[in-house]
Design a protein around this nucleic acid. Structure first.
Lengths: 109, 109
DNA sequence: CGGGATCCAGGACGATACTG
DNA sequence: CAGTATCGTCCTGGATCCCG
């Protein structure tokens, strides 16, 4: 059944911060750990690193370590990671249509 | 930030059985509760009804009740629900490529 | 600066039993 | 046939402290 393929893809996007991370990486190309941290307000280091690890394990994100005294680690999308962005964009367009009243509770802050 | 839109779309697909339900509904058009139950082996009534409710609340699935003695309820995708299938398909194609070794633990059975 | 380990709360998921 | 109520478990996500 083809649904399994979609499920696997979705499994990789599951996680409170993954799409946000991918979005920033797609927009900026390469970002350091602290860069991502600054750009994603509510995230904790633990969560950020965890989601990054899973993304890396799934082959969506690449991690580069620079053996320097002040540690420096850069994250970026792999080719495969970049390849899924159009699909994400299709989902975005679909979400933007949202014809029915639907739900949505926009925060005041 | 555009990532919010994707997140919202993904939020609607979150849930162990939602994509499977959507897949079956997309493939067959209309299905009864028991039909879905039969087609989705591991699901419990509670989970099935719960995911169906959420899908309905999000405007992806429509529910039709026939006031008969043997209860009959049919589920189907709304126009909006159908509209997201191409995006899901894009994700599917992307997942099918999966060039890197990646993970995946195929069952022995 | 980047990352790991631990402790803790909440919700998703699931098994079972019951109802109309 | 379709749906509800209850209880228990596991995992996700978060706060905090410690390390190279």
């Amino acid at each position: 059944m083809a649904a399994q393929g979609v499920e696997r893809a979705l499994r990789m996007l599951e996680g409170r911060w993954k799409v946000v991370i991918i979005f920033h990486l797609f927009a900026r190309g390469i970002l350091r750990f602290s860069e991502l941290e600054k750009r994603i307000p509510g995230v904790s280091q633990k969560m950020l690193i965890q989601q990054l690890r899973e993304l890396e394990r799934d082959g969506l994100v690449s991690r580069t370590v620079y053996p320097q005294v002040p540690p420096k680690v850069e994250y970026g999308l792999t080719e495969w990671g970049k390849a899924m962005c159009p699909a994400l964009d299709a989902l975005l367009e679909w979400a933007a249509q949202c014809p029915p009243a639907a739900e949505d509770a926009p925060p005041e802050g």
